[in-house]
Amino acid sequence: MTSKSVISASELSVRIGQRTILDNLNFEVGNGEVFALLGGNGAGKSTTLKTFLGLMKPSAGTASVMGMSVADNTNEVQKSVAYLPESVTLYGHLSGYENIRYFLSVAGVEKTDDAIHEALKKVALQENAWHNTLSNYSKGMRQKTAIALAILRNAPVLFLDEPTSGLDPAAIDEFNSLVSELANNGATIFMVTHDVYGACQVAHRIVLLSNGKLTGSFERSGDTPIDTEAVHAAFAGRN
């Protein structure tokens, strides 16, 4: 992980009518960093994500990705990042391989079969599932397919929305290992979540969001995961 800023919020606020959804957020995410924005329902996590994806406009301040203001360069930012929603939108009547091939063609990206197979191996999707229809996939398998697609697009920035929601413990561990590997290879990963344990296991830094305001920050020390109990206490408002 380096200190070069890839994602940043500068005095970022979002208001809808008289209601303030995000209130003067300031943070930076470095190259190769796994950054987790942790908050409960209604904290403003989804609004933050939508603002960085160019789906909502700031009322004040700036959301920037790779040095570009998202509001001023929405198309360029959207073409340069990968987004993994909580419910992955893929075609159930197509296989994992066919979904990847189709979405790569839509993005104008050409990849060989060998490259696609290598990406599917990297995300640990069972080979006997590659050509099965997604209607037979678990949520974890769908996520692996979507991440394989992100890898093939060579996206330098990944935005993840509640990525471990609905996954069993083994799938969560696999997912966290994959996220760590992507970061080690230079990807910058921004995730919003309410999963304290998962965030502590994989994130280099966790920032707490409550009622649209940043209320705390935790940082990993070397290879030691962030202290789950400390984050949980702060998250629950007991500190």
Rank of each mutant, 00 (worst) to 15 (best):
H194L: 06
V109C: 04
A107I: 00
K79N: 14
A199Y: 08
E33Q: 12
L94D: 03
H232K: 12
E162R: 10
S177C: 10
M66Y: 06
G198T: 03
R19Q: 13
E76A: 15
R142F: 00
I16C: 14
A234Y: 01
A203I: 01
L22Q: 01
K57P: 00
N184S: 15
D223H: 07
V207S: 11
D72W: 12
V179C: 07
P156G: 09
R205T: 10
L37F: 06
S138I: 01
T20Y: 04
V70W: 05
D23T: 02
S13W: 09
P225S: 13
W130C: 02
N73G: 09
I151V: 14
G67Q: 02
M66F: 05
T228P: 05
V14M: 01
G39H: 12
S69F: 07
T47F: 11
Q126A: 13
E110K: 15
L167W: 02
Q143T: 06
Y91V: 04
E11K: 12
M66R: 12
A124Y: 13
D223R: 09
S165H: 09
E118P: 00
L38C: 11
H131G: 07
L37V: 03
P58Q: 05
K45Q: 08
L178Q: 07
T89K: 14
A230L: 11
I16H: 10
S87L: 05
